[in-house]
Write a protein that binds this DNA or RNA. Sequence first.
DNA 1: CTTTCGTAGTTCATCGTTGAACGAATGATG
DNA 2: CATCATTCGTTCAACGATGAACTACGAAAG
Lengths: 342, 342
Amino acid sequence: MMRVRDALAEGNTAVNRTTLKDVADHVGVSAKTVSNVVNGTGWVSPELQERVREALVSLGYRPNAAARQLRSGRSGMVAVALPELSQPYFAELASELVRAAQDRSITVLINQTNGDRDSERRLSDGVGLPVMDGLILSALALNADDLAHRLDTTPLVLLGEHIGQSPFPHVTVDNTLAARAATDHLIARGRKRIAAIGAQVEGPNETSMLRLAGYREALTAAGLPLDDDLVMTVEAFHRSDGASAANRLLDSGVGFDAVFAFNDLLALGAMHALAERGVHVPADVAVIGFDDIDEGRYSTPTLTSVSPDKAAIARIALDLVLEPGPAIETSIPFKIIKRASA
Amino acid sequence: MMRVRDALAEGNTAVNRTTLKDVADHVGVSAKTVSNVVNGTGWVSPELQERVREALVSLGYRPNAAARQLRSGRSGMVAVALPELSQPYFAELASELVRAAQDRSITVLINQTNGDRDSERRLSDGVGLPVMDGLILSALALNADDLAHRLDTTPLVLLGEHIGQSPFPHVTVDNTLAARAATDHLIARGRKRIAAIGAQVEGPNETSMLRLAGYREALTAAGLPLDDDLVMTVEAFHRSDGASAANRLLDSGVGFDAVFAFNDLLALGAMHALAERGVHVPADVAVIGFDDIDEGRYSTPTLTSVSPDKAAIARIALDLVLEPGPAIETSIPFKIIKRASA
DNA sequence: CTTTCGTAGTTCATCGTTGAACGAATGATG
DNA sequence: CATCATTCGTTCAACGATGAACTACGAAAG
């Protein structure tokens, strides 16, 4: 008899795994009949079903996903590619996607691109991935050209950043509208010198530009002047960028009584820097962020933020990727969550 | 020359993905020869290799992972199961695992168990998963019995919580030692009334108990009394639990000048509550956490924390799962990162 | 001159599962 | 009684890639 070690030496990982045929031989029927019992297809008499089911359990049968997928073309898996799991927004989004997928009894494979164009392109081409039923991609660096020359034909849904005239469905909040709402909130609080933290001059910056546009729209609509000295550029959307932007703002000596940060990490970094320099939030400077990450509920002070409906993003993206339709753009609802910072 | 669109138009029943045979026909060789070129096996003349490689690129060939895996038994994928991606510690750990896996050119499939025993058991049995080369499981609710009756034979590595006399390798920090170091740090700062936040009376609580033991060891070694009124239990390790524990501590009227929180989220929640009640950190109460999540570097005040080497956890866990060895327990190094809160 | 060896490929079977197509009973219907 | 539908199950051929075994040919070795 072949021992486990011998099998391992052969390089076979799934050692001794029970197959349909094993179960079939045990019961004395054909493999297909067992397959029918497992999948509820075809006709099998109740008594036989019972016997097969017993054998399935006692032999510990579990279907081989690779074979199943090779045959049927379906994998029951959807890949999700996000820039950075260590960013709370993406981690929370991933969490929602996993949850939504579980509801549909499919498995989510999560990948991390680091916002790297090569990684994103390779993922969208399905390189190095098992064959998937779909791909949900939150791309930062990918461009329309990459998508036009995509090798893979698996359904693709894009999140967040907008990519040119892409022929794929896209799920996102209306960044301009949401940014305008955030700025309006500060204006309604009586703030007149509102700084924006999160402009980006190079790299992937579509989100940044849309939020900046919303910020400017709100100011203009309120009859407030646009002062470029109040617009702080950042390299990335991390806490450290927010902190450095706030410090530059303070160093510059330009007066401001509010900050609209383009995401919560920037806002939290900025609040941290403000606190260190003795500026009180919200007394001296009101701060509003974007994303409504959990952390903002426990910061000091708690962070007011634009809250996109992450569960809806997850749900809709999954539906679109599993049931491919036209390349429509879906706008996700958002709310302003009022907390202590503004 | 046949263009890609023509190939598509031929209507391969499955998907229009290029197979080895397509490439082989195009070049006029056997499928196996193309396979040899792709994998660098066998002997293929340089000129032919060149021609095949051209065809591979022009036809956009990508290997079918399911077929490859069905044949070879290897999938190039490792599953990682974590309780909650929305918890920064796990998100950061996942991020490190993805990075470490990329270095070894393997893919990581991330799952979320919600700390649910059923989910954990099903994962450890490989139910609903593609055949994997290994599983890295951070289990909360799984018990030794579940593991003993594991159906799957995929290499398994456990993270964090210790599970009985498990026959599987285990990677974790020495919780007791680290907790003692954290408490020692507070003692060295001259604190005498040190509260602990994070004791757990029911549910999965091994980590909690070990950290509590370390806390007590440190107090005893320093000749400080053990006061149960200073030990706060929590339901989970979330910010809200930390906040409520801090509030209960304040409400109880028991005096304390320091808090050792069993993780950073508890610490941040506690700091938030303390700030709301006008208690200054670290002037009135010093706070130290555990995990060293990124957020602690930008909280107000910044959070001193026990920092387990997450990159090392990821690296070692991957090595152990890919190169199965004895069921050893690996202790991960940690550091105390001193910031403003203690 | 035969044998061995190295190179450069081929063919074939197979991994585990499932769709398609095909019996073989049983009972109902005209 | 012949015909047809229904039920219950079977066999067969793939899905795409690859290890094992085999062919063919020239060159070197004995």
